[in-house]
Structure formats: C-alpha cells, structure tokens
Nucleic acid binder design. Sequence first.
DNA 1: TAGATTGTTAATCGATTAACAATC
DNA 2: TAGATTGTTAATCGATTAACAATC
Lengths: 215, 215
Amino acid sequence: MKRENEEKTVSPAVVARLSRYYRFLRDLKERGVERVSSAELARLMDLTASQIRQDFNCFGGFGQQGYGYNVEHLFGELRKLLGAEEGYSAVIIGAGNLGSALAHAQTFVRRGVAVSAVFDVSRRVVGSAMGSLTVRHMDTLADYYREHPFQIAVLCVPKDAAQFCADTVAELGVPAIWNFTGIEVRVPPRCIVENVHLGDSLLTLSYKLRQRESR
Amino acid sequence: MKRENEEKTVSPAVVARLSRYYRFLRDLKERGVERVSSAELARLMDLTASQIRQDFNCFGGFGQQGYGYNVEHLFGELRKLLGAEEGYSAVIIGAGNLGSALAHAQTFVRRGVAVSAVFDVSRRVVGSAMGSLTVRHMDTLADYYREHPFQIAVLCVPKDAAQFCADTVAELGVPAIWNFTGIEVRVPPRCIVENVHLGDSLLTLSYKLRQRESR
DNA sequence: TAGATTGTTAATCGATTAACAATC
DNA sequence: TAGATTGTTAATCGATTAACAATC
C-alpha cells in the first residue's frame, strides 16, 4: 500500500469495472475464501492479472507481495470506495411495472441504498401499497425532499414524462438520477445521471445474434 | 459508400455505440428531420463528428459528401444492421416482478423482437395471464422450444436458479440469453449472453456520487 | 532465506481525434 | 462551378499487457 491519498482521477474504464469486482469479491467472501491472487481473480473474471493489479493500484493498492489480496479486506475497501457505506437514500418515481419491480428488489439494500418512498401521478396507484411503502403523489415530492432529503431519484416514468421529471428533480437539487426511461434526459452538470437503457442492451444482443448467424 | 461487403470485424467500442445511434436516429426520424450531418449528430449525442463518420464507415459508409446523412436511410440501415428486421423471437423465464415488467414493456416490439411465451416454476403463477400470454410451466420449455424455436431467452429468475436455467436453455440450443439475474452464467461459446447488471449500474452511480461529494 | 506475488514502469495495442483529399 | 461534408489516412491519446524490481 503505497499512496493513500489517491486524488488523481481514475479512468472511466476502471470505474466501469469497479462494481464487477465488488460482485466477485462479495461472492468469494460469501463462499468463505480468505485470500485471492490477481492471477486467480483474473481467471475467475476473465481479465488479465496485470489489469487487476493496475486497476487496484489506482486506489493505492490493496494487496501484499507474496500473499495476494485478503478477500474480506479488499471487499471492505471496495465497498467503501463505491459508496455502499454512505447510507444513500433513493426514491422511485413512477410506480408502473418497472418501478414496482425495482421497489421489490433486493438490488438497493445489498448496496447500502435505502428506498424511502415511491411517487406517481396516477390516481389509480397513489395511496396504494408497494412493498412496505405507500405510493405518494408526485405533487408532494418537493415537500418530501425538504423533509427527507434523498440522493438518488430512480426515474421509471414513461418517455414523455421523463424530461419533465428530470427537470423537477434536478431543480430540487437531487444530486443523482438513475434513469430507466430510455431517453437521455438533459440536466445541469451538478446532477449525475446513470442510464439503464434496456432497449440498447436488447438491440446489442440482436446485433451479435445477427452477426453470429451470418457466418 | 465505398465497400459494401464489410466482413472485417467491427471493434467492440463501435458495437457498443450502435444501439445509441439507432435511438437518436429514430428520434430524428419521428421528428420529421430529413438529413443530418455528422457535426449535428455529434452535438446531439455528445460525440465528435470524426468518431461518428469513423463509426459508420466500419459498415461501408451511409452518407454522401456535401449532403450528410439521410435520416430515413441511415435509420433503415442501422435497423437492418442491428437485426431489428430479423423477426427474432424471445421467451421470458421467470414471471416475478421483473419478468412481468419486461413482458408488459414496449422494449421488445419497438426493436422487432416478439415475446412468444413466459415460463415459471411456481404453481402460484403458472396458468395465470401475463399481458396477452399465459404463464407456462418450466417443464414444458423443451417441448415449446421444439415447436416454436426462439432465439432469445430472457432470464429473470432468482440468483440461485440462474445457472440451472442457463444450462437448460443452452442445452436446448437457444442461441442467445438476455441475462437479468445479476450473476454471470457460464454457457458454451455458441450461446451469446448479454448481461444487464442493474446492481452494478446502481453501484457505479453510488461511486460517482461519493466522488462528487468528496470534492 | 527462498518463493510468491504485488506494485510499478515500459512497451504494445486499440480507439479517438485531426486533417485533408475525394466528391456530391 | 463553389461550398459543403463525407470517407479515409495519419497523428494522438488512452488503455491494456508485459516485465521485473520491490517486498512480504
């Protein structure tokens, strides 16, 4: 462990791999594995050992020469690094099928994010239960935010409401949007957006399928 | 348009951008825009004009000097290229919240993929309606596949059933898996897997949020 | 100590950008 | 024809891999 105050910015390529490392390390930990070498992890994750060491060293190095990486320690460091210990809070906007699926999923809890509320505009769903939460009306979002500030707005609304919701949320000062709407919302740079474009993913699969066939 | 028989393999970086181009072109088309230059598209998509031209030229070039790209034509070419005209068929495996959300979504239809069936193992849901489909028992999957071969198995089962389902599907000869299970299933190389790791996406957002805060 | 494996620097590879000739 | 904008080659940049000295 050489540098601890690693404020040099980490390359996007590395950032994109971080969550995957987290997932594999969690797995190893759950399976009771105590230590892992970059070579073993590389085999497991289909990467090169060199890349793994290079990646971890962006953060000062989590390993020990001649030993490798302690799974529990490395996992803990990744967890901190990724913000899973920050106790972030999220609300789901749009209580349709997808919003409902997300509200019920373990996705959040396992990563230290608490879903504190669900919002919608439809009279049909406002007031109804979704898991342990009651769906609130969108009009009460601003008040809610002031009383219970949250960090992540999960956008699960129809396309035509997406930009409006993003504007609303960004104006309140919510720092991050997890965007499932399938369109790319425009927000001021202080608001971070992470897109999940399911359609893009499906089409990429379709492309690969077609390539495979035409050979 | 220089080369038409472009069998040189396209770089992964380009492939990853293709669906996004498709989305923006569809948008332009729906808004009635007739032509677009690489410079305009670059501004719209936050890329460089150079990159866009480079990307399209992997496939032989879709534009015309002095004019730019005809939106309708470019969209059509992308559509073909991405396989949206192939009439692929998919089944959803796992009729929980996420499977149900996907079954109801327009995601498939808009990309030329038809969802032909939904499968589950739970007696509670088998036989019930999901949209216009009736949930079938997993035991009938093999028979179904033989009668109505499909190209894409959408895995929406719990983690502990994921590898088993992947094995089943791969053994049948299904050429592609769209994997929402959050674990990385092992399948023979003839089976293409496209992963949607929602948890990874959330955690990446969490990371960025934390970085933003500590500045 | 010797063996193992990291941290780190240097070399290679691939992807992006810049530049400009071709051409509509 | 002149102006615009592509297609394409060359230059730059960034990311990955290889190699090895540091060190547990």
